[in-house]
């Protein structure tokens, strides 16, 4: 698995130092839509210049190289134990080589492990698929935006939010309002709806792996995503929270079935530096 290990180190480098084209395109479009001479435009110009410098000098876009989250699809028969070992080894090497900022802190001793590995760090989700290829998706999730995420239980009276999709819409708007500019907007918003707290949180974050340009194949959700993006952008929080038209670049919603007694909604917020990438093996 030595070659695969080096492949994962390269995946780390790519994800930490460059943005997916759909995200960069959306930021460019946002920049020209903001008024010339405004603080919003000033911020987006620096952001775009930063993206260029980071790519050209192969340096991390943001000093917070975040929590690495892996979504791994394994073909039948491939050992997940071996794969996990390889990912952890690659994480140690990437921390030194890219470099990534060491972010894994021991809860008991408060010491930083120095290599981005530790208990439950990085986060790895496996799924076996009836396929012959191994696919490894990596997200580097900054913690400024992780901290502004929210979980809601419907109904929620303060928001006049009932147990329906309009109630979900109100939760998403409230979450973005609460986030203000603290998580580095323009944001990508992942929404997960379903039966249990742990399940919706994971589902919401998984939505952030979708391209901004994709379309939800459930018509009702497709419409809700479009409506929410439009509404969020009337809040006036703007790039970096300086005020302006672009508070979000995209909204992505995923659903699971729920229990008659429960209606959980989780909102995972991602900063403008939506760093994700895929390795096919």
């Amino acid at each position: 698995m030595l070659k695969l290990r080096d492949g994962i180190v390269e995946l780390y480098r790519k994800v930490a130092t460059s943005l997916p084209p759909d995200v960069e395109d959306a930021l460019k479009a946002a920049c020209v839509s903001e008024k010339k001479g405004s603080n919003a435009r000033h911020a987006l110009e620096i952001i775009l210049e930063n993206i260029r410098i980071a790519r050209e000098t192969a340096r991390p876009i943001c000093q917070d190289t975040g929590v690495p989250v892996f979504y791994v699809k394994t073909p039948i028969g491939l050992s997940q134990i071996e794969l996990e070992k390889t990912i952890i080894e690659a994480t140690r090497i990437a921390t030194e080589k890219v470099p990534l900022r060491p972010n894994a802190v021991d809860i008991i001793t408060d010491k930083n492990t120095g290599d981005n590995t530790g208990m439950g760090f990085p986060v790895i989700y496996f799924r076996e698929v009836p396929d012959s290829t191994l696919s490894i998706d990596l997200m580097l999730k900054g913690s400024g935006c992780e901290n502004v995420g929210q979980t809601y239980k419907l109904p929620k009276e303060e928001l006049k939010a009932d147990r329906d999709l309009d109630g979900v819409r109100k939760c998403v708007l409230d979450a973005v309002y609460r986030a203000q500019g603290r998580g580095c907007p323009p944001y990508t918003i992942g929404v997960g709806i379903g039966v249990a707290k742990d399940q919706v949180t994971r589902l919401a974050k998984e939505q952030l792996m979708r391209r901004l340009t994709d379309t939800n194949n459930i018509e009702v959700l497709f419409k809700l995503e479009k409506r929410l993006l439009k509404e969020i952008n009337t809040l006036g929080i703007g790039p970096i929270g300086f005020g302006g038209k672009t508070t979000a670049l995209g909204v992505k919603i995923g659903v699971n079935h729920r229990h008659p007694a429960s209606y959980f909604v989780d909102i995972s917020v991602c900063c403008w530096a939506n760093r994700r990438g895929r390795l096919i093996w």
Partner: peptide
């Protein structure tokens, strides 16, 4: 002073 979140390479320069 509010600087630009995430513009880490630009600001390092």
């Amino acid at each position: 002073f509010h600087t630009i979140g995430g513009a880490a390479a630009y600001l390092a320069d």
